[in-house]
Nucleic acid binder design. Structure first.
Lengths: 176, 176
DNA sequence: TAGAACATGTAACGGGTTACATGATTTG
DNA sequence: CAAATCATGTAACCCGTTACATGTTCTA
């Protein structure tokens, strides 16, 4: 048994269950499907694909147009994925720079802090709008994938909670 | 001008504004004050202190009991911190392994997924209870630090949103 | 006096991020 | 034909995490 997969590599294997894909496509798929709660870069994708190919979990196919290099999952890859997803998922990590800024807010002029907050609030409003649009589209097209709806609903709940927090801030903070 | 501080190092400088502290105390303070939205380990603390001492942002004092090594912030350190906190904070990153598991839920027997979910739900209930207790204590002791209340309120809102999501899951997911 | 808690640190690894370099194909 | 987009990759750095090693002081 080889050493355990990391979640990023495992996710790529997850996507490859649908059929062979190139690094570019995998990166794009990951961005749209899991990007809201699991970030990864193209660089990582190519690195993980290379290392999984070494380990026999994926196999490179013939290069196509634009030097496009498709990878297919192998039997060993399926086994490794199955092992990975059967393990207790770890708890989430959140790294929220804005909260650090708030936490050390006494070191900042109130207007400056307020400017940061309103910029971030706007960004979260946009993210919420994006999620709502996604949900509308999913509902309209009818073919509701329950698992995707579940993660989308998390995004909606999260963004609403964040916006609610922004709204309460003036009462909570000095000089609000 | 030296290269920009990372948020972890900057936070240590933030704490050192209250007076000299040892690595141990800084790690403990960080865990309680910003630990809910910014994780760091003791290892990092000692590494950042060493590198900030090299850069002249902190100064090691005389060793005390138990080989305790206090660090004090320097004028350059205050300047670096001021510069750091005046910059637009980046957007948050969330890495939520459970959502990956849900996202790839079709590859898992429903009972297994349900077990993961209920374990995580329990953990979040406990975190919410912890935050509520913190708030009670803060309110009882009267001396409400608005900035701390603001970050605590975020934690409360986040955990409530997560629990709400868990509650809606059965309706969203296949075999719920 | 034994064990818990305090305290400091090093070494190594894994992986996330950024920057850079290169070329193919499509589209205006 | 120029610009945009698609596509692959390498190199280097930073930093988060884990494991290990060592010694001190308090307290039951």
């Amino acid at each position: 048994m080889t050493s355990a997969l990391n979640a990023t590599a495992a996710s790529l294997l997850g996507f490859l269950h649908h059929g062979p894909m190139s690094g570019w496509d995998l990166a794009a798929t990951a961005e749209t499907v899991i990007g809201d709660f699991w970030s990864l870069t193209r660089s990582q994708v190519y690195r993980e694909l290379a290392s999984m190919a070494d380990a026999g979990l994926v196999e490179a196919g013939e290069r196509g147009r634009r030097d496009r290099q498709p990878y297919a999952i192998t039997a060993a890859g399926r086994a490794a994925f199955a092992e990975w997803i059967d393990r207790e998922p770890g708890s989430e990590t959140i790294r929220f720079p804005l909260l650090l800024t708030v936490s050390f807010g006494r070191h900042l002029p109130p207007e400056r802090l307020a400017a940061f907050l309103s910029a971030h609030r706007a960004a979260h409003e946009q993210r919420l709008a994006g999620y709502e649009q996604q949900r509308s589209l999913a509902e309209a097209s009818g073919g509701a994938d329950g698992y995707a709806m579940a993660t989308l609903d998390f995004g909606l709940a999260y963004e609403r909670a964040v916006l609610g927090w922004f709204d309460r801030l003036p009462e909570l903070m000095p000089g609000g």
